[in-house]
């Protein structure tokens, strides 16, 4: 007895045929045991039978498009079927198994709700909201108003739920399972990572007078977003991870390049460098004081840059 399974694009079983005979013929024509409605499949495409050694063997019956293993490029005329690797004929994927095919052992069901992910999600969510509330509080210089906190926090909650929900829906559509909790965890972790980066960058800009970390914050934002998107895509389906990674990577490289271009053009338009002047409590200063003379020495060096800017700016000016 032989089982023939026609697989979906995601390699899930679409339909399953039980063949009682010791040989199966597969093709588009009606003289086959299993009929495949795929225009790229030959009328008589494949024959599967047991050979003398009892192995299940597939034989291409001279199709134009050939027979392949899933993902393979080598055209196979006759080969032993192992029941694990799907076979591709035309654009259809098949899995052919013997009755003796060994299946994996029974997976043990969790006896109770898995608490760890739930706790993790709750903790991440609480930290994200807490950090956001703290950020709002620390920059509050006017009157304190409840709506000033509630608005942004509700916004964050809505954003997180919407984002995680969309990815859960995608997972549900493409892989059958929503993985809501995992998608939520990814979203929360991404949001928290970015919030933390924002704080660290501010601290660097003040305490270490390293304002580049804050000025190029958008790079960090895109990177976090890229990683988050990749992880979500992984939840949607664990196949072709390299391709997904490459696509996500390329998209975000483009995004970062575009934003950099936009910023440099804005700079040449209004002449103001995008820079972060950020003060924090004096106690957070982490570098030594620069001596006044050294500071003014640095400032004198700035003149060279201004003068070279001027030389660059002249040509258009003289053309007037």
């Amino acid at each position: 007895m032989i089982w023939v399974e026609v697989l979906s694009r995601h390699r899930d079983v679409g339909s399953r045929f039980r063949i009682a005979a010791s040989e199966v013929r597969i093709g588009r024509g009606y003289d086959n045991d299993v009929i495949i409605d795929d225009p790229y499949v030959a009328a008589r495409h494949l024959r599967v039978f047991h050979d003398e050694a009892g192995q299940l063997v597939a034989e291409d019956l001279g199709s134009a498009n050939g027979t392949f293993l899933d993902g393979g490029r080598e055209r196979l005329a006759r080969f032993v079927v192992d029941g694990k690797h799907p076979i591709r004929i035309g654009k259809t994927h098949l899995r052919i198994r013997d009755v003796n095919h060994e299946v994996e052992g029974e997976r043990l069901a969790a006896t109770e709700w898995q608490t760890l992910p739930v706790v993790a999600a709750a903790a991440l969510g609480a930290s994200l909201l807490g950090l956001s509330a703290l950020q709002i509080w620390l920059v509050q210089t006017g009157e304190m108003r409840a709506s000033g906190y509630l608005g942004p926090l509700l916004g964050i909650v809505a954003m997180v739920l919407l984002w995680a929900g969309i990815w859960a829906l995608m997972s549900r559509i493409f892989s059958g399972s929503a993985h809501l909790l995992r998608n939520l965890l990814i979203t929360l972790a991404g949001g928290l990572a970015f919030s933390l980066y924002h704080e660290v960058a501010r601290l660097l800009a003040f305490g270490w007078t390293f304002s580049a970390a804050a000025a190029y914050q958008y790079v960090a934002m895109w990177l976090v977003l890229a990683v988050v998107c990749f992880l979500h895509l992984r939840e949607v389906g664990r196949t072709r991870l390299k391709l997904k990674g490459a696509i996500v990577g390329a998209l975000f490289v483009v995004a970062i390049a575009f934003q950099t271009l936009q910023r440099s053009e804005a700079f040449s338009d209004d002449g103001r460098q995008y820079r972060v002047h950020q003060l924090m409590p004096p106690a957070l200063r982490a570098v030594r004081l620069t001596e006044q003379n050294v500071f003014f020495g640095e400032i004198a060096n700035l003149k060279t840059r201004l003068d070279s800017d001027r030389v660059l700016a002249r040509p258009s000016e003289t053309a007037r």
């Binding site: 007078t209 304002s211 700079f267 040449s268 002449g271 103001r272 460098q273 820079r275 002047h277 200063r285 570098v287 030594r288 004081l289 620069t290 001596e291 006044q292 003379n293 500071f295 640095e298 400032i299 700035l302 840059r305 201004l306 800017d309 001027r310 660059l312 700016a313």
Partner: peptide, 15 residues
Amino acid sequence: WYTPQRCHEDFVGAA
């Protein structure tokens, strides 16, 4: 009329 603005920022203490 102007070239782009350039800035320098630091902590400064008396000598």
